[in-house]
Design a protein around this nucleic acid. Sequence first.
DNA 1: AAATGTGAAGTTGTTCACAGCT
DNA 2: AGCTGTGAACAACTTCACATTT
Lengths: 210, 210
Amino acid sequence: MKKVVRTEIPRKAIYRLSVYSRCLHRLENNGIHTVSSEVLAKAAGVKPTQLRKDLTYFGQFGTRGLGYEVKQLIEMISELLGTKSLQPVVIVGIGNLGRALLSYRGFEREGFEVVGAFDVNPSQYLSSDSPIDVKAMDVLPKVIGEHVIKMAVLCVPPAAAQEVANQLIEYGVVAILNFAPIVLSVPDEITVNNVNLAMELENLSYFINE
Amino acid sequence: MKKVVRTEIPRKAIYRLSVYSRCLHRLENNGIHTVSSEVLAKAAGVKPTQLRKDLTYFGQFGTRGLGYEVKQLIEMISELLGTKSLQPVVIVGIGNLGRALLSYRGFEREGFEVVGAFDVNPSQYLSSDSPIDVKAMDVLPKVIGEHVIKMAVLCVPPAAAQEVANQLIEYGVVAILNFAPIVLSVPDEITVNNVNLAMELENLSYFINE
DNA sequence: AAATGTGAAGTTGTTCACAGCT
DNA sequence: AGCTGTGAACAACTTCACATTT
C-alpha cells in the first residue's frame, strides 16, 4: 500500500506567512507597490531563498526580474490563511488569563470575533470598556452551533482542559488555541496550537545561565 | 579563526524539558518514584527515544533495566532551566495585554517574580487582588540594576518595541519574551522568544479550511 | 529480563546554485 | 540585467536498531 504523497507544507512556513503579511502591510502603508524577495525577507528576518520557497508552496506569485506585487501578495496570503472574513471564536475558561484575553483587543484587530465567553461560573464581568457576559458551559453547544464556530481559545485549568477540549470537538470545533499546560490528545483532523507562557519563560531562563 | 563547537542542543529539546518537568511533577504527586522513558514519553506526547536522546544531551540520569528516578530528574531539569531560585522579571508596556499579564498569576506560580511594571504612562492600576504600581520608563535602569534583572516581558506597541528592546539590553537584560508582532533585531548573545497570539490564530485559521 | 544510551539511518526543513523568465 | 522558481546539496532533528548495563 502506497502512502499519499500530498507535498507537505512545513507548519513553520505557514507561520511565516503571517510574518510576511505583517511586513507587506507595512510596505503598503509606505506606498510601496513592488518588493523583491531580498527586501521582504530582510523585513521578515528570513533568508530570501526561504521566502521564495515558502511562497512557491502555494503557487507562483512573482515576476522574474521585478519582484512581487505587494497588494497581490497580501491578497493571496489572507486568502490562504482564511482571514478575509471575520472568523468567529469562543473563549472558554474565564480565570485570570481568560479575562486577560477578553480585554485584549488584539483578536478583533486581526480579524477574529469573540462571540462568546464561557466558564463553569457564569458572571457579568466588567472589562475596561464594556460589560462582557460570561455564559455557563451548558449554552456552549447552542452558541457554537448557531454561529458555526470552528475555533476556540482554551484557558481552563489543566485538570479540566482535556474534558473541555473533548466537548468543544464534539460540538464542531476543529481548531483550538490551548493555553492549558498539558498535552491535549485529539483526533488527527483537529488542530491544536499551544501557547505556554511559563514554558517560554523557562526556556529563556535556560539561556540566561549562558 | 575557529568557531566554538559546543555540541548544539536543539532549542526544541529545551522546550521539551519544560514539558517533562510538568509531567514529572504530576507523577510525583501521584506518589510515583521511578518512571521508564516509555511511560514518561507517553505522558509528554513524544516518542521514548526522543525523551532519552533529549536527556542525554545533558548527561546520564537513568538506570538501565529500571528507568529514571522522578525526584532526581525533576531536580536536574530545574537545575538546568535555572528555575531553582525565583527569577526576577520586569514587564514593560502596560496596555491591555500587559495588564492582562500582570493580573495573570501564572508567572509567580512557575518561579518568576514580577518586580516591576513599566509604561510611558505611569499609573496606579487596580488589579483584581492588589494595586500594582506602574512605574515610568526612566526608573527602568535603576530597577533593573538593583534587582540584577536579566529577563523582561515586552508588551509595548510594535512601533516602540525595537527601541524599548534596545534600552532593556543596554541596561543588562539578556532574555526577552516579546509579545510585539515584529521581528526584533538583537545581538547574538541576547535571547528573544516571541509570542504572537494573532499569529497563532491565523495559523489555526489556515487549518480550518482543511 | 528490562530499559537505558547511542551511532547510524531516515526524515524534515533550509540553503545553494543556477536555469529560466521578463 | 535582474530577480524568481526549483532541483540538488546540506543541515538539523528524529527515529531506529541494538549494544550495554543493572
